[in-house]
Design a protein around this nucleic acid. Structure first.
Lengths: 204, 204, 204, 204
DNA sequence: CAATAACCGAGACGGTACGTCAGGTCTTTGA
DNA sequence: TCAAAGACCTGACGTACCGTCTCGGTTATTG
């Protein structure tokens, strides 16, 4: 579902008043604000509509449900905030990527994402969408970082890249969502230097 | 909130009919069953009450809200299912503890815990309770495992124990709640052999 | 309260979907049916809503409470069932009016009205509404009957009309609500011939 | 039901602690106060118990239900407040009896009685009890007044005594419960002089 | 005098209905 | 045809009250 549906995908001759695309952003913005203020559970469609000075029908014309609205709002933001650093070294790339990801997740989007996580077990569609946008995107950036490092000869041949990618995400998410400990630079550096690099970096 | 509140802590001369403690268990059991069937979102107090053949007031007398009931149900179970292995070796202890923890989290309690995670950002009391029961308990077992290993001389002097403990939990939780990948024995062994042991185990 | 409230009395430009006026009747009908079946005490809003295939909110949007709904249902019916006989003679008019009023009050509306009477002492608004619809309307018909008789010269000059009007109502209501004795034609005739006519009719 | 039930009517050897009869009055008093304050509908057993500093079980040991408690409270009072005047003349007896009845009914007991009236149609037991205490008792006094007048030769031979008795009650009750007009001396005198005496008193 | 049984206040218990609120749909007027 | 507004049905919410039951404790009568 994810993104707003604009009347049938097919080429319709476009009758009547066209949908105002600027309402999409207004509604997403309102959704993000409400979510940041009261959380997912307490977010109501009426509140979002009222804050965007829109009618509920205008929301439901674009998203199928509250969940659909929220996930689209989050993934939209997430996909626009994934940096792709290229500092020339594995350590540099990892530090930069994880740092900026940590900074981004520490904001309202992180809270919204966490709210979504609670819904995953019983909403398969949401789970799929969430994984494909939030997780796969991060993972792909990390994979490309490792690939470039490999081309530079920085990796051990048998380096467990999948495990490294997984641990990088896990370390951040665990702090973010479970322990609540800060996602600061010191932590990122400890993870990079003591865990990720030893796991994949070449001998020496 | 967490646990059912039994009137004033002080020594009151016991007025009126005392709470029937067996209802606590019946209600927790009902809550767990309903949660396993329909998930946290769709769990209603009426359903729990009806399944336990109880009145809603009986629930609200003990727990302040649906969330409070669920968290108590989960932490109660969690605290009763934390093994404390002592196989004589660090590798053995870690494998056994993480395996049985993974198995436990793969069941209904894991799903319930995940639902709770979604509520943490906007419910500070819940966050505190969750961390003190779910997280600290696990962490303490792991810490004791490392301590015993240290006494046996298995650890490097400067081993980053906190980081090891954190990564062990993170690896499991990340799979459980985010990626949905299976928490099987192979995964546990990879984490133990390639990540945890290299991180802390002594030279040789 | 009495009648369903349709938004602000002032001239608002009518925004949003207008109230479906046909729901009013459906709900009043349902209320009357339920009341006739189980009585006022056992009448629940859920039952009324369900019978009218309506939501409870739809009821509460129009009436403030169960009492308000019932009183409106009754007065609506009452105002539509007050005959205005004109037989050409005082005795004929009284007999006809009181007979048909008695017949009407012997049905479900009478029971409902009785239920309302029990609430009057502690619900001033209800008392006012009840008196203005139930009582004043009956009283006015009787007053007009006496007036026409006066024009025909049937009344004594100093006839205590107010007392006659009051006694006519009292005799019926007392049987209906207190003693439970039947409101039959014989009773009406006794009241008319032995009480009302002697009280007001001319000498001879 | 009506009156508090003291263990089986049969001759039981009375074992255990006997019921504290003073609680009856305390509870009846509390019931009357609560009823006068909030009406029948809003009267709760908890409120009565709490005001009498009694447990609910203590109420239910004596009366079967809220209705039962209230009706007993009222009829108890009613039966103690029915005067039996004997002034030596029909007019005097009627004036005195109706005046004091009017005064009594204008107090809290009148309001309570009115509340009961609303319940009569759907509570046959209550209706029976109410009629046998409230109504029959009044009626009997009036009947005896008429009888004494008859012995004194004050009545016409064919005087419709039943109708007179009925109208006397009806006139009071109608004002009390329906119109809310005051039950003052002037009204009683008008009813006696213009309605009752003409109806039954001897020619001359 | 001890045992016994019913009393007492208090309040938890299973239920039922309350009046409110939110989700998602439908129906107006106006642009 | 779309937008805003808000009525609509559904169903869960948390509270209040009903009438019953269960406590600790009291008070008469019985043995």
């Amino acid at each position: 579902m994810a993104t707003p549906v604009y009347s049938g995908g097919a080429r319709a001759p476009q009758r009547g008043r066209p949908r105002d695309a600027s309402r999409d952003d207004a509604l997403r913005q309102a959704a993000l604000e409400v979510m940041a203020e009261v959380g997912y559970r307490a977010l109501t469609m009426d509140a979002v509509a009222s804050r965007a000075r829109a009618g509920k029908a205008t929301i439901y014309r674009r998203w199928e449900s509250k969940l659909d609205l929220v996930i689209d709002t989050c993934t939209q933001l997430a996909s626009q905030n994934l940096p792709e650093p290229d500092t020339g070294s594995l350590a540099g790339d990892l530090r930069e990527f994880l740092s900026s990801l940590a900074a981004f997740l520490s904001g309202p989007v992180g809270k919204a994402a966490q709210a979504l996580v609670g819904e995953l077990p019983h909403e398969p569609e949401l789970a799929t969408a969430f994984r494909e946008t939030f997780l796969i995107a991060q993972r792909d950036v990390l994979r490309r970082i490792l690939e470039r490092a490999d081309h530079r000869g920085e990796l051990r041949p048998e380096a467990p890249r999948g495990l490294a990618v997984e641990l990088a995400g896990a370390a951040l998410i665990y702090r973010l969502m479970l322990t609540g400990d800060p996602l600061d630079v010191a932590f990122v550096e400890r993870v990079v230097d003591q865990v990720l690099l030893p796991l994949v970096a070449g001998g020496q």
